[in-house]
Design a protein around this nucleic acid. Structure first.
Lengths: 350, 350
DNA sequence: TTGTACGCGTTATCAC
DNA sequence: GTGATAACGCGTACAA
């Protein structure tokens, strides 16, 4: 039984000052003009040390906290970034949100998360809501909206979007190489001696799904394995659909020795479906997923997967937006897909 | 292979108007005063139909979108609610955040999520940041901050906090009955004939952990089973700690036929640890978790768990805050813990 | 270096 | 009902 080393007390004195303190009050207290206080707060201009000391003391004494709403109105920048995710409880995007937040905070920016629910109309409303709140920029995670609509928004606001390949002024797209990731996963199964490899695709509306199917087929072709539509099962990126897909696959009596699922959630569902029919992973069927969710390491058995580092993606997206806001040409490097091998796949033996 | 029924086109026309349109411009266009436009926008007073029509047309024509920052400054309310969660990628709180968002949006409020990282100081900074942004109210999910600090904040801002039992003016606490939930889970294992029931606790700094241990002991006492410290393993609420705890338990050579883990993530880790030693769930060891994560239904085997309906919790928290903002005495009912039985536990046979 | 004065876009308080 | 006009709290020319 481990002992917690840092048993530090959690006593924290709140800054709570019920009264509202304004910059003007600080100015009065310090005996200077409000402009001087503002200058000190923003480092806009050089201020004499005596006055600076007086102002700092006054701020401390009164417990002054700048009103960011007023600052936003006056300065034109709100120091908040809109983030359109699809669902706040997505295990994949959750890490991305964390990456965004951690990158933004040190620079004084605060993310404003809204969810688009995989619906173009909802997304549009989200973006409009963010614009009404005068965010300084927007990060869109994948999304269903058309490229055209996105480009149009980019005219008035810097935008970073993931999961697409397009370029436009004021718009940077961060596109993960799904084809290559899927190819790697499939190739791995081929290298392990598998020839009947089933593929559980994602929602065909989703570009990721299409690209991953492409990568699957690409690997098969490279090894001169004929693509068999009977080995293709359509899923919807959630666990339930992976389970369903495997049940259909089994019911079809089509033989397969391995499954590549277009994401980890479906892979987990598939694993359950297999065990329902007493098929063991990896003894009877090898299994690989996609996304490398944090939980996949603890699946039973630990799931092999293609990592597209959701957390880093968030950090990069935020970083790129920060660069755009700074007015510099954004430079960035997207990590390539990485195959994470765990215990869910093994060599096929006849 | 299922066919997607709603193959609706995703064409959405963006509201994008690069030019900034102000309320004054609308007023000029409609030939009325800005006050009238504001009144129509907010329904503050009765306006003649002719003018209303003119204003509505002008709004439509110019594509006017109210500046919520300016509105916040002038009106004193920002229509945004601060939400202090602990980690944006928590599978448990993710559902809660979704519940909060879905409840708030229809009322014109927008949640502002920040994460406290299970650290009282970080939380304090979060709340200060939210106050600087002039949120109308705050929801704190559990949190490490002292009750005293929280009460102090509540003096200047309505606060809803989960995972605590305390009352104060301007403060409502939504407390889940952890003791009862843990008691139910343990009792279930006892009812199944288990007598050596190990308990993997959570981070002892966390009130939930303490209460769930209490519930575990309460159930044992009720059945006159002596509490055995050797069956207690300390975890930290993450998968890794559940795995570690089980390995320690096994290494200690202490016999046990069932495990109750203080949350699902540790339960999943524990399941992996058991399989590392060729112990099957539930044939050799029964297992119950806590939280009923969305993914637990698809664990292998599907995990029995105590549900505290994270999603509903979020909805209720938001609803209570909305009531406080409306000035009414909040009424609400917290759902009791529910035991969700799946395939990870079974009757103990000698 | 420092202060004055105005503007940011909206709501709220008056009179009419 | 409706329209001036004063806040709201801060940034920033401009002048000193």
């Amino acid at each position: 039984m481990s002992v917690n080393p840092k048993n530090k007390l959690t006593k924290v004195s709140p800054t709570s000052i019920p009264k509202v303190v304004t910059l003007d009050m600080v100015a009065k207290e310090a005996g200077v003009s409000s402009a001087t206080v503002s200058r000190i707060l923003n480092g806009t201009a050089v201020v004499s040390l005596v006055r600076k000391k007086a102002v700092d003391d006054a701020i401390e004494k009164l417990g002054f906290v700048p009103n960011l709403v007023a600052r936003g109105l006056a300065g034109g920048r709100t120091y908040s970034i809109g983030v359109v995710t699809q669902s706040l409880d997505s295990p994949f995007y959750g890490s991305t949100l964390r990456g965004i937040e951690e990158k933004l905070l040190p620079f004084g920016y605060c993310p404003l998360f809204v969810s688009g629910q995989w619906d173009a109309e909802v997304e549009t409303r989200c973006i409009d809501a963010l614009r009404a709140r005068r965010v300084d920029g927007i990060i869109v995670l994948t999304g269903r909206m058309t490229d055209k609509a996105l480009k149009s928004y980019a005219k008035s606001l810097p935008i970073v979007v993931t999961g697409r390949a397009l370029t436009a002024p004021g718009l940077v797209a961060l596109n993960h190489d799904n084809v290559e990731g899927a190819r790697m996963a499939t190739q791995q199964l081929i290298d392990l001696g598998h020839r009947q490899i089933a593929f559980i695709s994602g929602d065909p509306q989703h570009p990721d799904a299409i690209e991953r199917l492409l990568g699957y087929r690409k690997a098969l072709e490279a090894s001169r394995i004929a693509f068999d539509p009977a080995l293709l099962a359509e899923g919807g990126f959630f666990e339930a659909s992976g389970l369903q897909a495997v049940l259909e696959l089994i019911a079809s009596r089509k033989r397969f020795t391995a499954i590549f699922a277009a994401n980890d959630q479906m892979a987990v569902g598939a694993a359950l479906g297999l065990s329902r029919h007493s098929l063991r992973v990896p003894e009877d069927v090898s299994l690989i997923g996609y996304d490398d969710l944090a939980s996949s390491m603890y699946a039973n058995p630990p799931l092999s997967s293609v990592s597209q580092s959701a957390y880093e993606l968030g950090q990069i997206a935020a970083d790129v937006l920060l660069q755009m806001l700074a007015g510099t040409q954004p430079v960035f490097e997207l990590p390539p897909p990485r195959l994470i091998l765990r215990e869910s796949c093994r060599r096929h033996v006849n």
